[in-house]
């Protein structure tokens, strides 16, 4: 697997910078500002240790210890009327602090409130399954295992849910390359035809916009058209490229070949 290099917003940088100051985080309010949440937090604090709690965008966020997750969710479900686990998953903070953040998003239809329970686990640590409390956690925990490799203790069927069972690696880890590692690139070839077919089938073509200038069988060329199948040696006469007809209606600024940039690197 590729080594992880921190990418501090590299994708956003060349394209966009905020014109005004933007707060790095959504503002937080104290839990005491909402009496329903304050009562809920008191009930949690009475039984479990809470490391942090605040209200963000009208939802209470509570940080607990990883060992308490089953107890806290049981309390929320049975006593505090948070009867639905709408979403749960993990966040990869391995590069920053070698930890995963697990969140459980809870909904109370009676109180019309949402609470998010969060906790940190070490890399390689397992969590307690909450599948016995919420059936929705069944698939969510399997997805968490599939995508991050975090196992849930006590889960009845701890297997991958989306990727094939014989897959290697966990795709939602930030170290996992988007276009797949060596295993992923050859997965279907290895599985169906065997490793010896790699040379015959060849590597994946990852640039579908690629145009081979000297392949007249499969690509038409702009500016210097040749009949299909012509062997092009590379010393064909230069023809000025223009998208604007002489004397035609002005549509497009004339294409200046001198100022254009040729992109050679298909990965750019």
């Amino acid at each position: 697997m590729r080594a992880y290099t921190p990418k501090d917003n590299v994708q956003a940088k060349p394209y966009y910078t905020d014109r005004f100051y933007v707060a790095p985080q959504v503002p937080k309010q104290a839990v005491e500002s909402d009496e329903v949440f304050a009562a809920d937090l008191e009930a949690i604090k009475a039984k479990f240790e809470v490391s942090d709690a605040y209200i963000q965008v009208g939802q209470m966020v509570v940080y607990i210890h990883a060992k308490d997750n089953y107890g806290v969710l049981e309390l929320l479900k049975d006593e505090l009327q948070y009867t639905q686990l709408t979403e749960m998953s993990a966040i990869d903070w391995l590069a920053k602090e070698n930890k995963f953040e697990i969140f459980y998003q809870m909904l109370s239809m009676n109180k019309r409130k949402r609470v998010r329970i969060k906790m940190f686990i070490e890399n390689g640590q397992a969590v307690n399954s909450v599948e016995k409390l919420f059936r929705s956690a069944d698939w969510s925990e399997r997805e968490m295992f599939d995508m991050f490799g975090i196992e849930a203790n006590g889960h009845p069927f701890m297997k991958r849910i989306l990727m094939p069972y014989d897959w290697q690696g966990h795709p939602l880890l930030k170290t996992y390359p988007l276009q797949g590692d060596e295993f992923a690139a050859w997965y279907e070839v290895d599985k169906i035809y065997g490793k010896e077919a790699r040379d015959i089938i060849g590597p994946e073509l990852r640039d579908p916009a690629r145009v081979d200038r000297y392949d007249s069988d499969r690509f038409a060329r702009l500016g210097h058209e040749v009949p299909k199948g012509t062997v092009i040696t590379g010393d064909e006469p230069k023809i000025e490229q223009s998208y604007q007809e002489e004397g035609g209606v002005f549509m497009i600024k004339k294409f200046d070949k001198e100022s254009s940039v040729v992109i050679d690197d298909p990965q750019r």
Binding site: P171, L178, E204, L205, R206, P208
Partner: peptide, 17 residues
């Protein structure tokens, strides 16, 4: 060609199979 799914989970063209 795999189209817009230039990712780890998509076969890049059914003619590979």
């Amino acid at each position: 060609t795999g189209g817009m799914f230039n990712t780890y989970a998509t076969v890049q063209g059914v003619d590979r199979i």
